[in-house]
């Protein structure tokens, strides 16, 4: 049980580190946003799950935090992306191809 929790903690940490690596490596704001948001969200969920294995009696509050992170994180990143687009930050060169309906 504790070993399973530790493994989830490790997986969460690994996703966070990879996401931050993406934050450094990606060429423009929108790609960085993708890397940062996705990795941080899944990393946090994995850490919460790991802690849940260590302390099963905390599950209700951990569930609330997980639901909250899952719901607000994408909203926040969409808001940043929209703000950046409206304030005139162009996607990296060669990526301004646009598919319109």
């Amino acid at each position: 049980m504790n070993l399973l929790g530790d493994i989830f903690l490790l997986v969460g940490g690994a996703f966070m580190a990879l996401g931050s690596l993406g934050l450094m490596r990606m060429p423009d704001l929108y790609n960085r946003l993708q890397a940062g948001t996705k990795a941080a969200t899944l990393g946090t969920i994995a850490v919460l799950l790991g802690i849940g294995f260590h302390h099963p009696d905390w599950w209700t509050k951990l569930l609330v935090i997980a639901g909250f992170v899952l719901f607000t994180n994408p909203v926040g990143s969409s808001t940043i992306a929209r703000a950046a687009l409206k304030s005139g930050i162009e996607p990296v060169r060669g990526s301004n191809r646009k598919v319109e309906s």
Partner: peptide, 9 residues
């Protein structure tokens, strides 16, 4: 934003 999520965890 990413830092704050990591801080929550």
């Amino acid at each position: 934003d990413t830092l704050s999520v990591i801080t929550t965890a």
